Simulated assay, not measured.
Amino acid sequence: MHWLKQWKASSSSTKPGVMHLAIVVLWLAGVGYAGYYFTAQRLVVFDPERVLLSLSAQDISSMAIASLGTKNAQSKGVIYHFVDNECRCNTYSEKHVKSLNKQAESDLYDVVTINLSLDNAPDFITSTPATLVLGEENELMYFGPYAQGAFCNQSTNTIGLVMKNYQQGFNAQLINHQAQGCYCQRKQPLST
């Protein structure tokens, strides 16, 4: 307690000078720059080689059907999750995947997870984690990442919106190639 009285006595008579304010400003600027730098390091373009620009929705659904097969006859569609066990970004999409799987189950969609380090996958998979949603007639509804941003969290639920719109008769056939977030590029070269 004695030290507290001394500190109060000494601090009440000492006012912050220009040097103190300069140090605080420099410290805040340094913290801001470090935050920006480390966030920018996490932001990667989902399709850096622009492979997906040359593909149509029909191309992607045809390639998916050729390499992955078709959906179950009783289901209303299929959701493919593409992951790579070595990708650190999978942890950010776990809640989103669980939420999508719950929605898929209630909407009678098949759910298939493909691990790129173990399974063969179509060449159009440019980065992971990614998802492909095909509708009742195996038509493309959505292909791309789960979300965008440094932590790729569930706040932008584009896939849920696409699925809801599909149930109401509208299919955007969305290929989300411009997203920036936490993604791991595929290791093998792609052919188009």
Rank of each mutant, 00 (worst) to 15 (best):
V97C: 01
D110K: 05
G30S: 08
N85Q: 13
Q74L: 08
F46C: 00
V45G: 09
E105W: 12
N85F: 08
V31S: 07
Q41T: 05
Y92I: 01
V44G: 03
S67H: 07
T70A: 13
V51E: 09
L52P: 03
K95V: 07
G30P: 02
T70L: 04
S75G: 02
P48G: 04
I65R: 07
D84Y: 03
E49V: 11
K102M: 07
V31R: 04
R50N: 14
A34M: 14
Q41K: 11
V112Q: 13
D110G: 04
V31Q: 05
H96S: 10
S99D: 11
R50L: 14
Y109C: 04
T91C: 06
A66V: 03
Q74W: 06
V112T: 09
E49A: 15
E94I: 14
K95H: 10
G32Y: 03
V24D: 06
L68C: 03
F38G: 01
H81N: 09
E105V: 06
D107I: 03
Q41V: 05
Q58L: 13
H81K: 07
T39Q: 11
Q74R: 10
V25A: 14
E49N: 11
L52H: 02
D59K: 00
V83L: 11
V83D: 02
A104V: 01
S75V: 05
E49L: 09
T39S: 11
K76A: 12
V111Q: 04
R50V: 08
H81W: 07
Y109M: 11
T91Y: 10
C87E: 03
G77N: 01
S93L: 05
I65W: 02
K71F: 01
F38D: 06
N101F: 04
D59F: 00
Y80S: 00
A73G: 10
G69K: 05
K98T: 06
S62Q: 08
Q103A: 10
S62F: 02
K95E: 13
F38S: 05
V31W: 09
K76M: 08
K76N: 15
A57L: 04
S61N: 02
S54C: 09
Y109L: 15
K102E: 13
L68V: 01
I23E: 07
R88W: 08
G69R: 07
Y36V: 09
D107L: 13
C87S: 11
G35W: 14
K102L: 07
V44R: 10
V44F: 08
S106M: 08
